[in-house]
């Protein structure tokens, strides 16, 4: 039950959606609703108007072209989990999708919506950050491309009257692999701690690209640049991954905690997951050169 009323719009096009967002103050986008509706039910979010974009057919697609993946705003976790093309091109999507909530939530929750929302314990934001998604953002003055980087998160990149129409990911050439792992919160299933890793190696085994993103342990999902820097340019054969993970110190002050898992506990889990995801990514690169 949602205690307070709100109005509802069901635009048929992106332009209509942008209009609805612009004309109504306090209007928010509703896609899968798997984050927004629970918050509304608990009274933690009270939007004045909902702009349901589910009727915009042009937002529902998943294109896999070689190493370029385009994900429309209405593409669900379940779509990503089940796509055989995607599994062949970028297996981390299915691997991560299986760790999100449960099948019923995955059938409605969208990838782009999760990026836009940026829940502190969300799984997709870690993937979006590690794979450096490019967002197509549509607003009153047309559309623009926003590349997510170490210092720009999706939820910071968009204004209230803009809509993310799609996310595009280009997997780097060369020996590249990515892994996502999480420890579920025992009650909610959100990431108590989650880590996404993407590594690219050159022919000599030297790391030419390293992206590590964490979720759950921080106030918002974020990349871990100091850890990335300690790997980039190194030959992974000679690197003690456990030591790399243990070097996680700088952001400790920003590690969150609650009554169920304190910040020291989350920091410990974060180190373990960084070590294990790095190890698994390296293992994938070595088994499939």
């Amino acid at each position: 039950m949602i205690p307070t009323g709100c109005s509802y719009h069901r635009p048929q096009s992106i332009d209509q959606a942008v209009d609805a967002l612009t004309s109504g103050s306090g209007a928010v986008i509703l896609a899968g609703g798997q984050s927004l509706i629970p918050l509304m039910k608990l009274g933690q979010s009270r939007p004045a108007a909902l702009v349901d974009v589910a009727g915009i057919a042009s937002l529902r697609y998943l294109n896999v072209e070689g190493r370029r993946i385009a994900i429309g705003a209405l593409t669900t976790a379940r779509d990503l989990e089940r796509s055989t093309d995607l599994a062949a091109a970028v297996p981390v999507f299915a691997q991560a999708a299986k760790q999100i909530a449960d099948p019923a939530v995955r059938a409605r929750g969208t990838f782009v919506g999760a990026l836009a929302f940026g829940d502190p314990g969300g799984d997709w934001p870690a993937i979006g950050l590690a794979l450096e998604a490019t967002l197509e953002v549509c607003g009153p003055s047309g559309s623009r491309q926003v590349q997510i980087g170490a210092n720009l998160t999706p939820w910071e990149a968009i204004k209230r009257n803009e809509i993310i129409a799609s996310a595009t990911i280009e997997v780097p050439d060369g020996r590249t692999a990515a892994v996502y792992a999480k420890v579920r919160h025992p009650a909610s299933g959100y990431a108590l701690v989650g880590v996404a890793v993407l590594l690219t190696l050159d022919a000599a085994g030297v790391c030419t690209r390293c992206r590590i993103a964490a979720t759950g342990a921080l106030r918002r999902p974020a990349r871990l640049p100091t850890i990335e820097a300690s790997i980039l340019g190194s030959n992974l054969d000679g690197l003690d991954l456990e030591e790399v993970a243990a070097s996680l110190r700088a952001p400790l002050a920003g590690i969150t905690g609650d009554a169920y898992a304190g910040s020291a506990q989350r920091a410990q889990l974060l180190r373990v997951l960084i070590h294990r995801t790095l190890h698994q990514t390296v293992a994938k690169l070595t088994s499939h050169p």
Binding site: G33, Q34, I37, D52, R108
Partner: peptide, 10 residues
Amino acid sequence: AKACTVLAAQ
């Protein structure tokens, strides 16, 4: 689908 997390309007 969790019918408690879907608006009828959707």
